[in-house]
Amino acid sequence: MSWRHVWRRDLLSTYRSRLVPVVAVLLVAATAGIVLAIYALSPSDRPPGMRSAVFAVGAVSHALVPLAALLASYSALIGERESGSVRFLLGLPNSRGDAFTGKFAARLTAVGAPLAVGLGVCTAAVGALFREGSYVDMVGLTAVTLLFALLFVGTGLALSAVVSTSTRAVVGGVGLFAVFRGGWPALQFGLLELTGADRFPVPPDWYFWVGRVNPLNAYLKLTTAYTDFGGTGHPLLTAANDVRFEPDAGEQVVSAAGTVAVTHEFAAVVLLLWTAVVPLLGFLVWRRRDLL
């Protein structure tokens, strides 16, 4: 169980290098801050509702958590190789698996602990002060957000294991985020153009199959399990259904994507697969590669 020694030592090192404090302050301030700010800015006779809290936490976390997690983990392994301390790390009776696991656990602690604190504050505030505020649902939202953090700590660690310089790890991390945040929707719209498919009232099923395997979208979809966003769902996700009043027919017309890709279950499977597969691939490379 020598990964625990690696975990403890790495946490202490990163804490003293100020990386952990910076990430911690960032995460606590952003999550607790946004929820408290929403409350402070609302009229005192009409406190904000649960929906605005879930939206705010999801909107902030879906961008901030990947960035903070990648920042906290991109240098975990490549940094040791570059500084030469890998000779210390693997000069001791640690296997490469111990090193990988211990580092993973340390960087996850560095991100997960402040995130849990921040979201704990959110949970307390929302449960006590918000309209229809639910402690249980906020705990659920916290759990999903921590899983999301696990995914990106694992992704940063995998990057750190496979690259040969930390500059490449940074480029890889930033690039990956840009692909998920910007490249993915661009690809979806590009495909819509190419195929001449109609986006309204709802895009074709394949559009959702492409879009919902993006882990950022999978996370946002899962946050909608903890409050009711109404007919068109989360504002940051493409609506999977549409309700319009047709004046000619004198009735409401409901259009909905019939694919499993828009369900919560699909989003959960997507998030779990990314979380498990990416670090596993990173580890398989790390296990056999030349480190020096």
Partner: peptide, 22 residues
């Protein structure tokens, strides 16, 4: 079997780096 080897080996390698914060 790297761990049994490392358990019985002490090494001072060229380019050795320390943990600056420790």
């Amino acid at each position: 079997d790297s761990v049994p080897v490392r358990r019985r080996t002490g090494s001072l390698l060229e380019g050795y780096g320390v943990y600056g914060g420790l």
